[in-house]
């Protein structure tokens, strides 16, 4: 080609596979390998629930939720190198109303537990929780702390526990993929009443503490009562 003709003007010389496929009408842009594997029939036969669970497990929206040290490793899990998105579960949503999965990345303390419960309640069903790190299992290194809840499971139900302090990003990826497997198989932890629930102040059993606080707290205010003596 001569140098005074930098662009190809002759249409017949521009041949790309994509254009070919489009011009021949029946392009195979939408035909994946999977489609070929089905053979001649464009239909698959499966149970509706199973199909839906497979969809759910293949596209999980995570709640963008940082608490403590583990959230740094969680950010690394979302970002380059580990890239959780490869497994179909890496879209952090800032609002709990758009999220399916909450990763609890850190220590839960008395002041935060009611907030976490509220955020969990705001997520639409079906929702799943990954407990990241030792603190969400038992309080971890801070278990003896006067202000620390001995595990996130005292407040909300947890499907997968990822141990470590903090777990490596690889471990978190493994945990999330395990959760996806469970969701795809239709398994989830039963939602049970946890020891620490949000309740109205007037519903608490009257005792010395409640009487003492009666002036400070309105009757219809939501409170969480911690019985530290009964904690594991």
């Amino acid at each position: 080609m001569s140098s005074d003709q930098p662009f190809i003007t002759d249409e017949s010389q521009v041949v790309t596979e994509t254009r070919d496929a489009r011009m021949t009408g029946q392009g195979d842009r939408f035909n994946s390998r999977l489609r070929e594997a089905f053979g001649s029939s464009p239909f698959i036969l499966t149970k509706f629930d199973k199909f839906l669970n497979w969809c759910r497990g293949s596209s999980m929206f995570m709640l963008q939720f940082g608490i403590a040290c583990c959230s740094i490793e969680m950010m690394h899990t979302y970002a380059v190198k580990h890239d959780l998105d490869r497994f179909g579960s890496g879209v952090p949503r800032a609002s709990p109303r758009q999220a399916d999965v909450m990763i609890v990345p850190g220590t839960i303390v008395s002041k935060f537990a009611p907030r976490m419960k509220r955020v969990y309640d705001q997520m639409p069903e079906p929702k799943f929780v990954v407990g990241m790190g030792s603190c969400t299992i038992s309080g971890g290194p801070f278990q003896e702390g006067y202000n620390v809840i001995k595990g996130a499971e005292e407040v909300i139900p947890i499907d997968i526990h990822v141990p470590g302090c903090p777990p490596r990003p690889e471990a978190l990826v493994y945990g999330v993929v395990k959760l996806q497997e469970r969701v795809a198989n239709g398994e989830a932890s039963p939602v049970t009443v946890k020891p620490y629930e949000l309740e109205e102040f007037s519903d608490l059993e009257r005792d010395e503490l409640v009487d003492k606080l009666a002036d400070e707290i309105e009757d219809d205010e939501l409170v969480m009562r911690y019985n530290f003596a009964d904690s594991p």
């Binding site: 008395s110 002041k111 537990a113 009611p114 907030r115 419960k117 509220r118 006067y146 202000n147 949000l198 102040f201 608490l204 503490l209 409640v210 003492k212 606080l213 400070e216 707290i217 205010e221 939501l222 409170v223 969480m224 009562r225 911690y226 019985n227 530290f228 003596a229």
Partner: peptide, 28 residues
């Protein structure tokens, strides 16, 4: 500043009992 306003006792003082129950509020 660090503990909920409804906390009872001062945790690093000498007579603090860390097993006593506590109530934290979720102020609207």
């Amino acid at each position: 500043i660090l503990l909920p306003e409804t906390w009872q006792g001062h945790p690093l003082s000498m007579d603090y009992d860390k097993d006593r129950p506590q109530i934290a509020t979720l102020p609207e």
